[in-house]
Amino acid sequence: MNFEIPKETNPGKIVEVTIGATAKQGGTRSHTITIGGSTALPFHFFEGEHPHQPVIAMEVFDKVPAKYPASLMDYYRDVIDKPADMAKKCVEEYGAELISVRLEGTHPEKGNKSAEEAAEIVKQVLESVSIPIIITGHSHFEKINEVMKKVCEVTEGENCLINYVETDNYKTIAAACIAYNHTLVAQTPIDVNLAKQLNILLTDMNFPAEKIVVDPLTGTLGYGLEYTYSIMERILNDGLGGDKMLAFPMLINPGYESSKVKEARVSREDYPEWGDQELRGAYWEIATSVSLLAAGAELLIMYHPKAVEVVKKNISEMFDLKNGD
């Protein structure tokens, strides 16, 4: 029996989304980054187009995270409270392709920094690195709306990725993104319908489709990954299947999520069967990232330098296949 490769072609295509803007485009970035554009499942080079590789962002903070694992702190101790320096280190030493500035410190119960302070930090990061940046907020609606409005305004033209809006709080931030020309993350909690609904609401207010990135809300390995994984596969399948409201590139947060869990924090003495703590922290982030890459993630915000290195290398190796053929 002669074997014939069963190829499947899809009617749909994931929207191409570009983050960042060069001087020519009205910003100050040295280059832009584009994700999306595929017409087949991840790494299925034999049956479709994958014009862009998944990219890795690393994250810096406006205030030292309350629960930052010791194993990570060892890499960042000198810069953890200096977001601009930390960004530089992530880019130059660890190969970050984008920088996410997490503005947790503006939350009224976590520091209540003002919108102006936040804007200042973002500006410093923009000055210290030349790659495109992501601005990551929180769920205190009133405050984050104020902060994001300000940040969008002071970064006008930079085409930052504003992370995130949710179904119950999208209008203000989306309007700011339109006004100051930024790209937006639409975040919904692990549900295909909710993801689609928010995308519809955004496009219904004339938000441009090529400026939407979807965050299906990552659960990390062992903490909801079983749900996220399948929700992402379903979103991608539907998007490729021709559902335009689900055909957006997806962002995940393996770094943030993995750093929160017990596995990243407890010692081998307390949990001997969990093995080496140092390795475990990186492993957890790697397994989360790679499995979700297989499910369709295209933008990963990561923390652990070892994990970044190996995931990035594996993505390139896989894409060698495409370039080789």
Binding site: D191, V192, N193, L194, K196, Q197, I200
Partner: peptide
């Protein structure tokens, strides 16, 4: 649950 969240939209998530 999936059917239900799909229907929590006007007229439905699947226009």
């Amino acid at each position: 649950m999936n059917e239900y969240t799909g229907a929590l939209f006007l007229p439905h998530t699947e226009m």
